[in-house]
Amino acid sequence: MKPFDYLRAENTAAACHAGAGRGAAFIAGGTNLLDLMKLEVMAPGKLVDVTRLGLDRIEEEAGGLRIGATVPNSDLAADTRIRRDWPVLSRALLAGASGQLRNKATTGGNLLQRTRCPYFYDTDTPCNKRTPGEGCAALGGETRNHAILGTSEHCIALHPSDMAVALRALDAQVEVQSPEGNRRAYDMDNFYCLPGDTPHIETMLEPGDLVTSVFLPAPKGDRQVYRKVRDRASYAFALVSIAAVIRMEGGRIAHAAIGFGGLAPQPWRDIEVDATLTGTTPSAALFDKVADILLQGAETHGGDDFKIPLVRRLLPAVLEEATA
């Protein structure tokens, strides 16, 4: 690990100020950052500890919940309000990592965890995300864990979070504080950037921008399902995952928001999928049709070819469960 200075920030303003310095990075649970720092994939010269800023509370607000950025994933999953009204979020969190990791992993850190592309981790291979302009070793390489939607010729890495997939289906917002002291919020739809020719830029955050909380609006659907398919039964990242938030009225789908993991460089959602489902009566034909819509334009790379038939089976199964 490269040497770094450590600073325990006393308040959010001090954290943002220090985080804006050249080579500085925030550290929360450390479960992703330290892993990457050991391999020198990331080598910040200064670590700003954000775990003692009082951002560890979950508070009721406007019919929804405001979740502090450093609330551990385990507390969030176990919160009785989340379990009752936003169960898809509990389920997504519980499907991720292990009991130990969830105790350290935070809301903000989970959103901002980096890809698990093996070439990103291997500093002996070229990677545009690690070193812009170097090339992409995944193209033509081992691609079992890569994205098939939203990629570019420069990067096909996927976003590995389970939690973020549920948050996207729940229309959550990410609140950010800037070094100038301004607060702003992003819809999950606008928080992440597609790789394009700048795969090293993953979110709208600028240096020193601190994620302070995530706002969960009142749930728009009471039928919530999270399904994750992976290579082993537990303690593994998703090959494909789906979060469905649905409300039924008189046998018809009145609200549909479907989030997808394991398919794209960001927790994915397709407005055409949601729109096609909304207002209709559930049927096998409808579910196949939305799978077609989702996968139009999908590009696979050999190792990830299996994701197409997997999604074609998983999506109808999830929708069937959520609309039954």
Binding site: Y6, G29, G30, L47, Q100, N103, K104
Partner: peptide
């Protein structure tokens, strides 16, 4: 493993289990 994948380093912090290999002592 030293990377959060095996659990051999599990300790309790304020009664909670964590992987001590993925945490800085100074924190």
């Amino acid at each position: 493993c030293d990377q959060g994948q095996c659990g051999a380093c599990t300790v309790l912090v304020n009664g909670r289990r964590i992987n001590s290999c993925l945490s800085l002592a100074v924190m």
